[in-house]
């Protein structure tokens, strides 16, 4: 197990263009599950591939376990990586796939069988050892890829969107398996995904990336409840946070906090006129679409997320009094879009 650290890590693919990764400084904790989260093109995979040694950084440093590995080849870094496609070797059986890293790193042959069986046992694939990758299902392939990664007991695990090729149902169970797997082996893990649900569910901490820049590092609760800027605020959460331009600030609040005014105690509420347009019924909750009726907001679209147990019906086109609890308002600077000091506002 080891700590991974990057210092001023930058990757520029084409001179003169904006870097794919720009000045990234981060440090994992021992045995941590760290998630890189960002939309496609945010540089998260490039960042991971630099840590793996598959891309050369333009500038900056990478340290694994305190040792500078910036100029070491992938095989000298004692890491294991699971790829998006799993990258199983198609001409080898599952057994030989798992034994491949042992062979490549010249582990004495007598130990192969025992180690392969240990890794296969950990992932429950003992019965598949004689098969070829093409004879496996998606979930089985993922387990083989994990077994191949764990077999030589690496110091760090790197996972590049390992669930994105599974169907929705399988993805949930595979996610659980990953969680259990990590709690068993407790190896420092870096996990790349564009799926916020995966990131929230799996991560001890989340690194939110956008255009190659780290926007925020924090626990799932921190990045959700205390977003550092408007990008993080809108990227996490579905539907995204409502953002209302207001003088020199942007005021944000989550859809689940925008409720009929009667549900919030009078001394807490910041009220607004909600011009209701239509709703989506999703079983456990309802998503209400509308806009702010006050003229100065220029009919800004807002979304409310109402638990289904709240029984209230709204006429399309009607104007209803809605409110947000005062302490749920987040303030962002209008110029920099970064978080700013909260202040007292009244919108009525």
């Amino acid at each position: 197990m080891a700590v991974v650290e990057t210092k001023g890590l930058t990757k520029v693919f084409k001179k003169g263009e904006l870097g794919a990764v720009n000045d990234v400084n981060l440090t994992t904790q021992e045995g941590e599950f760290l998630v890189f989260l960002g939309p496609s093109g945010s540089g998260k995979t490039t960042l991971l591939r630099m840590i793996a040694g598959l891309e050369t950084p333009t500038s900056g440093q990478i340290l694994i376990g305190g040792q500078d590995v910036t100029h070491l080849s992938p095989r000298e870094r004692r890491i294991a990586m699971v790829f998006q496609s799993y990258a199983l070797y198609p001409h080898l059986t599952v057994y030989k796939n798992i034994a491949f890293p042992l062979k490549a790193q010249k582990v004495p042959k007598e130990q192969h069988k025992q180690k392969v069986e240990w890794a296969a046992g950990l992932l429950g694939i003992e019965k598949l050892l004689h098969r070829k990758p093409r004879e496996l299902s998606g979930g089985e392939r993922q387990r083989v890829a994990l077994a191949r990664a764990i077999v030589r007991e690496p110091t760090v695990f790197l996972l590049d969107e390992p669930l994105s090729n599974l169907d929705a149902k399988l993805r949930t169970s595979a996610r659980e398996e990953l969680e259990q797997f990590h709690s068993r082996v407790k190896t420092t893990t870096i996990y790349v995904t564009h799926d916020q649900v995966e990131a929230m569910a799996l991560g001890d901490r989340i690194v939110v990336l956008h255009q190659g820049v780290v926007r925020q590092i924090g626990t799932p609760k921190e990045v959700y409840d205390d977003p550092a800027d408007t990008f993080v605020a809108t990227f996490l959460g579905s539907p995204p946070m409502n953002l209302i331009p207001e003088e020199r600030d942007i005021v944000g609040f989550r859809p689940e906090h925008l409720l009929p005014a009667s549900l919030i105690s009078p001394d807490q509420r910041v009220s607004m006129h909600f011009h209701f347009s239509h709703e989506e019924y999703l079983g456990a909750e309802r998503i209400l679409y509308g806009s702010l009726a006050d003229k100065r907001f220029e009919a800004k679209d807002v979304i409310s997320r109402l638990p289904s147990r709240v029984e209230a019906s709204f006429e399309p086109g009607s104007i209803v009094e809605f409110a947000v609890p005062r302490n749920e308002l987040k303030f962002f600077d209008r110029a920099t879009e970064k978080r700013s000091e909260p202040r007292v506002i009244s919108w009525q």
Partner: peptide
């Protein structure tokens, strides 16, 4: 990715 995997695996 196959070659990447092989290089990470120690080749």
């Amino acid at each position: 990715e196959l070659e990447d995997a092989a290089m990470v695996d120690g080749l």
